[in-house]
Design a protein around this nucleic acid. Structure first.
Lengths: 203, 203
DNA sequence: ACCTGAACACCGTTCAAGT
DNA sequence: ACCTGAACACCGTTCAAGT
């Protein structure tokens, strides 16, 4: 019964999609690998370490080691595309955003690389360093917050109850939102445009 | 040994500040109240229910039931102030943002009320309904994401190690950031201005 | 080097039974 | 109505001992 680090992470991600983050258990991961629980500790320092690697693997499915704008692509198109891929990476797994949040900026190496790439490319595009920093920070916070909220959505039942009860601003606004066939993708992109517009204005 | 719902929530928030979210345990809450664990289940449906109420209480410390702009205050000043108070509410308790994230938009009633107030006041200010919706969504995602990252910061050790290792763009940019005495408050506000600028442009 | 077996100190949740 | 007492089915982590 030989086991390696990658198998553990892969199994954990399968478990994540099946049972959610709460259901990712070292004992269940071990069982899926036909191994006793203690065996995992040879390849993984602890559960936090596993979650960090889950976050990195999850992000690696959308990002390579070194992200660069395609030739002829300006900073705006590139940044927009990176944000959409970041969202896709987190959406690809159940509670993916919470996994990344659980790892955190510091421990998710892929995220740090992404930050580096963004700031680098904004500097190359001629941004003053302060603006490059703030743009990167703002846009990442936005994507992050948006997807966390998006994936926490299973409170629909209660939201629907609120819609049913007549007259609140939220309900009418939300009904209108539904009626116009706005999707989460459109909302995400619209918010992104808002921020990008602000960035361009501050140059 | 009479116990009420509010005592449980208050005790849980104390535990949160002392031991972190991981350390908030029904068994420890019960112990602090000199009660057996099972007793809590008379006042609280389950742990999730408790976390929801923690989020609401946490937000109630900064927000009243109905938020209105002060007379003569335009939408921009009001919205900026609301965002700063939302951040303060989450910063006031250890891992406060994670608690709110754990509750989620749907179950944190105070958050829903806030959404309602923001959309309402933007509509009153003459926003088209789509822009009001997107502005609210974008700004809340930003605040949310920013504070979650801000509070997950204890990865400084590893960040510092990265700074030490010379030459990466992140390290030089971050050193410059430190050298100019930029604080998290300033970064937060700068990002907020970026978004507000974009909103104004889209009118 | 890598896994087993077994223990330790915890969890959330339920529910009869008491008062 | 509200709490006790005790159980049930779990957790993460450690570590001697095996191979």
């Amino acid at each position: 019964m030989k086991i390696c680090r990658e198998q553990i992470i892969e199994t954990a991600l399968s478990l994540l999609d099946r049972d959610g983050l709460e259901g990712v258990t070292l004992r269940k991961v071990a069982a899926d690998l036909h191994v006793h629980t203690g065996a995992l500790y040879w390849h993984v320092r602890n559960k936090q370490d596993l979650i960090d690697e889950m976050a990195n693997t999850l992000l690696s499915e959308q990002f390579s080691q070194h992200e660069e704008p395609a030739s002829g692509q300006d900073w705006e198109d590139w940044l927009r595309e990176v944000c959409q891929r970041l969202r896709q990476a987190m959406l690809a797994h159940r509670e993916g955003a919470r996994v990344v949040a659980g790892a955190g900026f510091a421990r998710a190496i892929m995220l740090k690389r992404l930050v580096e790439a963004i700031i680098h490319n904004l500097l190359v595009a001629g941004f003053p360093s302060r603006l490059a920093f703030i743009t990167c920070s703002t846009i990442l916070s936005y994507v992050y917050g948006f997807v966390i909220e998006e994936q926490a959505a299973p409170g629909d039942d209660e939201a629907n109850r609120c819609e049913g009860s007549g007259g609140s601003i939220l309900s009418t606004a939300w009904n209108e939102h539904q009626a116009n066939n706005y999707t989460a993708d459109m909302d995400f992109l619209a918010g992104l445009e808002l921020i990008l517009e602000g960035v361009k204005q501050h140059r």
